[in-house]
Nucleic acid binder design. Structure first.
Length: 956
RNA sequence: GCCGAAGUGGUGGAAUUGGUAGACACGCUGGACUCAAAAUCCAGUGCUAGCAAUAGUGUGCGGGUUCGAGUCCCGCCUUCGGUACCA
């Protein structure tokens, strides 16, 4: 019998599906374990080989935990709202719901093929009204709450309204953007519109006009984490700042808790650091500067209050609210021109020329709170309106940017920190002795900061303050394919939440998906839908992608519940995710929002814990080799071709590398066969390759390091192209997507699963190639062959030998330890060693092979199920118990110990396991190799590390 | 710039607490089987010298601690990821 995955895999796939083998119950005596994958966006390209990497790892772990006796929740679903489906709809007219469902269908086929143990009865789809009903419901909860600073939690907005009516807002400890103080009487006199405007400054989901990231090409605004280097993450289109009325989430209210609770999580330090940086906590002081000509004050934030005597000017962001009123009439023209200039610049422009210093003088002065000196007020784009207060005191002596500004505009520089005691310290290092600073003179920077804050508070110039880089999250998208806001506006524009009974508010059906005019969503064209509530208009923006993904893991616990987003019973049983596996690309987006929503739901008493994901593993990316040519000069059909990119693949038939060239913007043409080039010694010593350019029928000789670059020359040695090799993401637009289907078709799912694990550590990024897959394939065939003698079943009931037991239990220990530390690649090599040994021992004993098969079942579910059945079992191997390790089988009479002279290994001796220190020393010295090295030398010291090694220290 | 991760044979990688560097696999070399090929099996394979035993050398570079360093410390270099006029 030969191992034939094409036969056994479909058989079990069907059987598992029919028997609902992986269905999991919420009510059981077993301990729970929740293993979660980041659910995919179902793109048109299908799953590529990178997706399953994490899914396979988590599936192995889920299956392992199941065998260990846990009730394991291991679900899967689809993050089905999003831009690509809508962009596709704009181009083709195909409704996003339709294309999304088609893609989901394909994903499901691909996932099933690989043999994942998902409980599909719990599938979620974020674009399903039965799902997004609850996304809307949570949004309304956010809308209906504010953050109470004294209770450190979210509190219903109705209690705030009561407080306002009784005492106004002056004494209320809340996270707010409200700046105007009002009394109870003033509150009670307000119109409902005015009241709502005030409440918007408190709600956790609120509307405000702000300078947002507008992406013209996508016709929508984007959140900060959706913008990378001034370009949209999706599509790479330019992004500019635009003032718009938008929904936002007050995530900043949770900044401190999001930061503090990071400590409790088993996440990588790298990931925690990313979140910390994104939150960006900094301690300092808030300070008010009086103005010369008006009653108004400028509020600033600084982390360096000690340097205040070096503050020789102030800079406001061009968008700062006070700029207009404090500008001196004589300078109005320049200021206006500068504001216009700053507004015209996109983020990309700003980043492209960060060194250029620009700014303009307002003609007005502030009064230094300590020295009483007049200090000029400037505006400059290096001060960001969104961070801190949008205004700074500039200390050119101790801040590089302020220094550059002062130099350019000829402003005064007072050196206030003497750094002579700290050579090499840069301007922003908090080191040195204060000088020219009145009462701070002689103090160390750190002392001076503390003293200054104290004085600032005493004299009521300001107070100690903690500032965060984290901004509130923009929550509006001017797109069709997202959750509608359950909000309607009356004629005055006052927003009202829909009643719970009116949820879900479903998306209207559209035929035209082009954005509507004036930066509006296509939804605005569905007039009937917009006006379905007489006297009201519905919000036409939709929610962003992270809305549905911020709580989906809770829905899996109780996926079909029509009465609650999750029942209390279910959430109290499953609690939180024990293991979450996914890519780093969600480090600050999804993972931050999900934590925020979870804390909010915790405040409302709806979930039992404060953190959703206890342990998190980031699987590395599987990249593709990208080949980019620099100087390709060839013609095709008489036309000059443009080489815009190149993907390289292994030709499965010939095992040769194949390159593809892209001609113009059209489809790729096949460029070359690149096959192994052997040097004179017939060795592949320098990874050289020869290429043949098919389209022209001309030979090219390509050489170079395949991991870095290649170049090609023709027979005459004339250089044709230099190809730089990069590792890049797999994407449809780069023609480098490798689908798992092909691999599974050829080698089977078990082989594919094990090969992906064998590639290397799960957290590491690695390029995809199938070079080593034959090794895994051979392993599976060898393992299978242990059960057969020629064509006949050869399993015996003989009692195993000591050696056979040892091989088995060594493997049990190694594999179990390695699964626990998520080192799956070394598990595979342990299996290989085990099978190699058993093959050598010609072991066909059920007592050995049966536990080994259970051990292997999480990795290769099909082949193990098949052999399990052939061993005479009626029920599935995936429901049995994990083999128990018995250290007794590993005890040996003798151990091999290396003997080193001065740390260099010279011999390996065999000593009895129970030998004494003296006996070991004697045996070591008796060794012939040791004798030889001891000749004419003096033994100084002898170190015995029991069971490890012996080291003899020797001198001439 | 700042923060984080990494650098080991021709290749992917292993070495879990400072204790035999290169497990396991790919590739390659030689051999067996075959008319031949594939598949399979056996042997070899870090580099240098040597027929060999063996010796020297070897984990990005330069120092250090230690009986002993891929692992710890100091100073660099390179690559990747994140982030940035963040006051």
């Amino acid at each position: 019998m030969h191992y034939n995955p094409e036969e056994i895999e479909p058989k079990w796939r069907e059987k598992w599906g029919k028997t609902h083998l992986y269905r999991v119950d919420n009510t059981t005596e077993k301990p729970k374990f929740y293993v979660l994958d980041m659910f995919p966006y179902p793109s048109g390209a299908g799953l590529h080989v990178g997706h399953p990497l994490g899914y396979i790892a988590s599936d192995i772990f889920a299956r392992y935990k199941r065998l260990k006796g846990f009730n394991v929740l291991h679900p899967m679903g689809y993050d089905a709202f999003g831009l690509p489906a809508e962009q596709y709809a704009i181009q083709t007219g195909v409704h996003p719901a339709k294309s999304t469902d088609e893609n989901i269908h394909r994903y499901r086929q691909q996932l099933d093929q690989i043999g994942f143990s998902f409980d599909w009865s719990r599938q979620v789809k974020t674009s399903d009204p039965a799902y997004y009903k609850w996304t809307q419901w949570i949004f309304l909860k956010l809308f209906g709450h504010y953050y109470d600073l004294s209770a450190q939690k979210a509190v219903p907005i109705t209690s705030l309204v009561n407080l306002f009516a009784e005492q106004g807002n002056a004494q209320i400890p809340a996270v707010t953007t409200q700046t105007i103080v009002f009394s109870a009487g003033e509150w009670n006199a307000m119109s409902s519109l005015e009241k709502e405007e005030v409440l918007m400054n408190y709600r956790l989901a609120y509307r405000k006009t702000g300078h947002v990231n507008w992406c013209e090409a996508l016709g929508t605004v984007l959140a900060n984490d959706e913008v990378k280097d001034g370009l949209s993450e999706r599509g790479g289109h330019p992004v500019e700042k635009k003032a718009m009325m938008q929904w936002s989430l007050r995530i900043t209210a949770y900044a401190e808790r999001l930061l503090q609770d990071l400590e409790t999580l088993e996440w990588s330090d790298a990931l925690k650091a990313m979140q910390k940086n994104w939150i960006g906590r900094s301690e300092g002081a808030q300070l008010f500067f009086d103005l010369e000509n008006t009653e108004k004050k400028i509020e600033i934030f600084t982390t360096r209050p000690d340097t205040i005597f070096g503050a020789t000017f102030m800079v406001l962001a061009p968008e700062h609210a006070l700029v207009k009123s404090l500008t001196h009439p004589d300078y109005q023209t320049e200021i206006n021109a500068y504001i216009e200039y700053a507004a015209s610049r996109s983020d990309v422009d700003r980043m492209a020329e960060t060194k250029e210093v620009t700014g303009a003088f307002t003609g007005n002065y502030a009064i230094h709170p300590f020295s009483g000196k007049r200090i000029p007020i400037w505006i400059g784009e290096y001060v960001l309106n969104e961070y801190g207060t949008g205004a700074i005191m500039a200390v050119p002596s101790d801040d590089d940017r302020d220094h550059a500004f002062a130099q350019k505009f000829g402003l005064e520089i007072i050196p206030v920190v003497d750094k002579s005691a700290y050579p090499g310290a840069s301007a922003h290092d908090k080191k040195g002795i204060l000088q020219h600073s009145d009462f701070l003179d002689g103090l160390e920077v750190k002392e001076a900061i503390q003293k200054m804050i104290q004085i600032i508070e005493e004299r009521k110039f300001g107070k100690r303050k903690v500032n965060y880089k984290l901004r509130d999250a923009n929550f509006s998208r001017q797109r069709y394919w997202g959750e509608p806001f359950p909000i309607r506006y009356d004629q005055e524009g006052v927003p009202y939440p829909l009643a719970e009974a009116e949820l879900p508010l479903t998306l209207p059906d559209l035929e035209n998906f082009q954005p509507a005019s004036g930066g509006k969503s296509p939804v605005a064209r569905a007039e009937e839908w917009v006006n379905q509530f007489p006297g009201f208009e519905l919000e036409t923006d939709t929610m962003p992608g992270f809305a549905g993904s911020s709580w989906y893991f809770l829905r899996y616990m109780d996926a079909t519940n029509p009465d609650a987003f999750v029942s209390q019973e279910a959430v109290n049983y499953w609690k939180d995710v024990d293991l979450y596996v996914g890519g780093t690309e969600h480090a600050v987006g999804h993972l931050m929002y999900a934590r925020f929503w979870h804390k909010f739901l915790f405040d409302l008493g709806l979930v039992p814990g404060v953190e959703p994901f206890q342990k998190l593993i980031n699987q590395g990316m599987i990249t593709a080799y990208g080949y980019y040519a620099e100087n390709l000069r060839f013609q095709k059909d008489g036309q000059e071709t443009v080489f815009i990119g190149n993907a390289v693949d292994l030709d499965s038939a010939s095992n040769n590398l194949i390159g593809y060239a892209f001609v113009g913007t059209g489809s790729p043409i096949r460029l070359a066969y690149v096959y192994d080039y052997l040097d004179a010694q017939n060795r592949l010593s320098k990874s050289q390759f020869t290429a043949y350019y098919e389209a022209k029928g001309k030979d090219f000789y390509v050489a170079g390091d395949v991991n870095k670059y290649l170049w090609a020359t023709d027979q005459n040695g004339e250089e044709y192209l230099t190809v730089n090799v990069v590792q890049e993401k797999m994407s449809k637009s780069k023609f480098n997507v490798q689908n798992p289907d092909e691999v599974v078709d050829k080698y089977g799912a078990d082989c594919f699963r094990m090969y992906e694990m064998f590639l290397g550590p799960i957290e590491q990024s690695k390029p995809w190639d199938t070079k080593g897959i034959d090794g895994v394939n051979r392993f599976l065939r060898k393992y299978w062959s242990l059960f057969f003698e020629g064509h006949s079943w050869s399993i015996t009931q003989d009692v195993p030998t000591q050696e056979e037991w040892k091989v088995l239990h060594q493997t049990i220990r190694k594999v179990t330890d390695d699964i626990e530390r998520f080192s799956f690649n070394t598990c595979i090599s342990a299996f290989m060693m085990c099978v190699n040994e058993l093959k050598r021992l010609e072991c066909h004993k059920q007592a050995i092979l049966q536990p080994l098969t259970v051990l292997l079942a999480p990795f290769a579910p099909f082949i193990t199920e098949e052999l399990w059945e052939r061993m005479g079992h009626g029920s599935s191997i995936h429901l049995v118990s994990y083999p128990v390790f018995d250290a007794g089988y590993l005890v040996t009479d003798e151990v091999e110990v290396p003997v080193c002279i001065n740390g260099k290994k010279r011999d390996v001796i065999t000593v009895p396991a129970n030998a004494t220190q003296q006996e070991i020393e004697a045996l070591a010295q008796a060794s012939e190799a040791v004798q030889r090295h001891l000749e004419g030398k003096v033994l100084q010291k002898l170190i015995v590390v029991p069971g490890r090694m012996i080291n003899l220290v020797v001198r001439e």
